[in-house]
Amino acid sequence: MSRLEQRFAALNAAGRKALIPFITAGDPYPEFTVPLLHEMVKAGADVIELGVPFSDPMADGPVIQRASERALAHHVGLRKVLDMVAAFRRDDEETPIILMGYLNPIEIMGYENFANAAQRVGVDGVLTVDLPPEEAEACVSLLKARNIDQIFLLAPNSDAKRVELMDKVGSGYLYYVSLKGVTGAGHLNTQDVEQQLAMIKQHTRLPVGVGFGVKDAKTAKILAEIADGVVVGSALISKIEANLDDPEQARSEIIELLSSMRQAMDSGA
């Protein structure tokens, strides 16, 4: 059983839902990241999605694009992100870490080199935005052999056939993108999400996390009632962007938002 599967099994047994924050590694500067990861765990994060900065983040909205640019200005790429995971693991052997990003950094490192490095530093899952299941076989088999899950995205326009494909090729959990668009866009319609999740659940045994457009505790609570996990990204990164001259303030605002989401998700109806 992977660390990720264990985590979801434990949450399920406790009747709780996963809170999954996303931040871009190295934003706004490299030393900011690892301490923040620990604090997010204390604030109630169950799984962490750590963004690997990429020069051409085609599926991201302006907030995460700019986070990538800030990190890249400090030359934070895949190799430094792996170092950060290693540093995090020195003090936390429990919390699953998912690397989220684009395929090219992994291509350039080489699938096998990447899989070995990810295993060595303690990465639990990989979510590659531009790697659909049809092209993923080579990468997935190398990761699977090392007990690392490949997480796939599902979109509002994914049909049952595609859900079944993700269920077959993917593991860990599925990430349902709640709206057509880029990260951080618009407001999600929880009714639509509920309908779509019902369909998805019929075609997969994997836990399903929901993200894109989760901005506050209220939305997190509603989603936690219908999904297995709630992903929050742009709303956290906005705090960094709003406090570039005061990173400590950004850190405390991020923790405050996460804590409020945790509380809302755990509170009864």
Binding site: F54, D56, G77, R79, N104, I106, I108
Partner: peptide, 21 residues
């Protein structure tokens, strides 16, 4: 350049050692 993935296809690209374009 060397082979990598950008804009939907695998092809020769100009990228650095981290795969940044």
């Amino acid at each position: 350049g060397k082979p990598g993935v950008l804009h939907g296809n695998r092809t020769y690209l100009m990228a650095d050692e981290d795969g940044e374009i």
